[in-house]
Nucleic acid binder design. Structure first.
Lengths: 132, 132
DNA sequence: TTTTACTTTAAAATCGTTCTAAACTACTTG
DNA sequence: CAAGTAGTTTAGAACGATTTTAAAGTAAAA
């Protein structure tokens, strides 16, 4: 399925701008990125785009499940092109994130989901720090 | 150990402002809060404090391990008075966080920590959504 | 004490992100 | 294909959380 079809399937009009971003993000490679990093990649690809459009686009892509936003206490939103359930190592010093595939983690025991709620995904974060 | 001693032990001068905040936060009750919520509690306690001081203080307290900051993609920093390793349910719609005690989660298998790094804490986040 | 280093403060600045409203464009319908 | 309309993009203004500034204040050391 090409990117135009992916956008259509997600209920998004395949505009010129969304196609430029889809061509960068939806290439099957797992990446963590911020709006600013994406803007640099757009510029490097010989295109340009208003930062407002980049934010709009990221929000739409995220809401459609084309990308994920990572839970992070950094001041800049971090997105992930890996939309499968998976986990992360986090170096809190540098903010570096490293993917952990889902099958590398196994939960023996999970707590009961609160009354009236459904499980909507489990994320394991392993904080790491450089050895001295 | 009283709060003055706790601050001293953490390497922080027990100033008037830090004592006010310590009296609110270090009462043994587990709470999630933002700088704004804390400011309201300070005001309710009949005190007042510059917002810059509140941020300074939260940063110092966090760096000393007196409180924790929660990994969250919300635009406001969320802190936690529970400094023991534990986990959370997160309702992404509302942002509500519910504590999960560490012994309610058991990991059968953890990935190998990357070369040159040490494990610095594991956090499990279970995203939940309201049943329809 | 006196000194020194650290802390607090109000106000300004900064930074990421969102809003606004006008111009534009993809899609629908006739 | 033409015209309409609903959704999109844009630059720039606005916003909200947080940090910086620089001056005044305070705790601890000498």
């Amino acid at each position: 399925m090409n990117n135009k079809e992916k956008l259509r399937k997600a209920g998004l009009r395949p505009t010129k701008q969304r196609m430029i971003i889809a061509d960068i993000l939806l290439d099957g490679i797992n990446r963590h990125f911020t709006a600013e990093i994406l803007q640099n990649e757009i510029n490097s690809s010989g295109n340009s785009m208003s930062i407002a459009t980049i934010y709009n686009c990221l929000k739409k892509f995220r809401n459609c499940g084309l990308i994920k936003q990572i839970e992070s206490s950094k001041d800049t939103a971090i997105f992930d092109t890996n939309i499968n359930q998976h986990h992360h190592f986090l170096d809190e010093e540098t903010g570096e994130l490293i993917d952990i595939e889902n099958d590398e983690v196994n939960l023996r025991k999970l707590p009961e989901i609160p009354q009236g709620y459904l499980n909507n995904g489990v994320e394991v974060l392993i904080k790491i720090k450089k050895q001295i």
